[in-house]
Computed example of a mutant assay.
Amino acid sequence: MGPMIRQTIQQKKLSFWKILIMIFATAFIMDITVKLFSRISPTIASVAGIISLLIAVGGCVLIIYRHIAYYNYKLIDDDLIMERVFGRANHLFLNLKLWELEAFYPYSEISSRGKKESVKIYKFVTGINHHQWYVGEFTRSGDQYRFIIEPSEELLRAIQSVRGEQ
């Protein structure tokens, strides 16, 4: 049996003050919207207030979801599995055999590899620390894919050893 390696990539915690600012900004935008549209008609002001509330709630949920969710990378034998975890739910996003990888290189080399047309990109990283990111490329059913991960040293060595790289 080959290696079994698991790694978790988590986002920085969302601070209390950022959440508080989001709530106050939502209330402020709704108030401004209602005041502006109340000059036209009270009915239009009510509808505009509801629409701005829905947009603000959607934006807040999206921001919070991105900060609470995290990624799991698993290497079991020669299967590389990447999933997004939100709460107790694990959502499998990508499962591939390492022999399917056509290229695996540091993110800093992505510009030198050339831009490919119609490449689907999966990002399994958080933050902006590009120095530790790696890019994998593979083809399935004639479609080209790229994924971006931030492997630990152990996971990186295991991927490179299974692929026969140094």
Rank of each mutant, 00 (worst) to 15 (best):
G2A: 11
A48V: 05
M1G: 12
K120I: 08
K116G: 14
M4L: 12
V34K: 06
E165M: 14
I21M: 11
K12H: 08
A25I: 08
I19R: 13
A158L: 04
L155G: 02
L14Q: 10
L54K: 03
R113V: 03
T33Y: 07
V162N: 12
V61C: 10
R6V: 15
I68N: 07
I40D: 07
S141H: 09
S111Q: 14
R39G: 13
F16E: 12
T139N: 09
E83I: 00
G2C: 01
G58C: 02
H131R: 14
T43M: 09
E150S: 10
A48D: 04
I19H: 08
F124A: 05
I32T: 11
L155S: 00
P3L: 12
I23N: 09
E150L: 00
I121L: 13
D79C: 06
K74D: 09
L53W: 06
I81E: 07
K74Y: 10
V47P: 05
I128A: 09
Y73W: 05
F24R: 03
D77F: 07
V47F: 10
L36D: 07
S161P: 01
L20Q: 15
M22K: 03
A56E: 08
N95H: 14
A45K: 04
R140E: 14
W17Y: 12
I9K: 03
Y71E: 05
S152L: 02
N90K: 12
S108V: 09
N129H: 13
I63W: 09
Y70D: 03
I128F: 11
R39W: 06
G58K: 00
T139H: 08
D31R: 11
G58F: 08
L53R: 04
E100S: 11
I63P: 00
F16L: 13
M4Y: 15
A56R: 03
I55Q: 02
E154N: 07
R66N: 15
E102D: 14
S111H: 13
M22I: 08
G58T: 05
K115S: 10
Y70R: 01
I148E: 06
K97F: 06
Y105H: 02
D31H: 08
S161T: 07
V47E: 04
A158C: 07
R6C: 07
G136D: 03
S112T: 12
F28A: 15
K123I: 02
K97W: 03
K13H: 11
F147L: 03
R146T: 02
I148G: 01
A27H: 05
E117W: 04
V61Y: 07
N95V: 04
S41Q: 09
S41W: 07
D77A: 12
E165P: 05
I121H: 06
G49H: 03
M4T: 11
I128H: 10
V34Q: 03
A89N: 15
K18M: 14
E150K: 02
I149S: 01
L20G: 15
L96W: 02
A103K: 13
I55D: 10
D79A: 10
P42R: 06
K18F: 15
F16T: 15
D79G: 02
V47A: 11
K12W: 04
A45V: 02
H131L: 15
R146H: 10
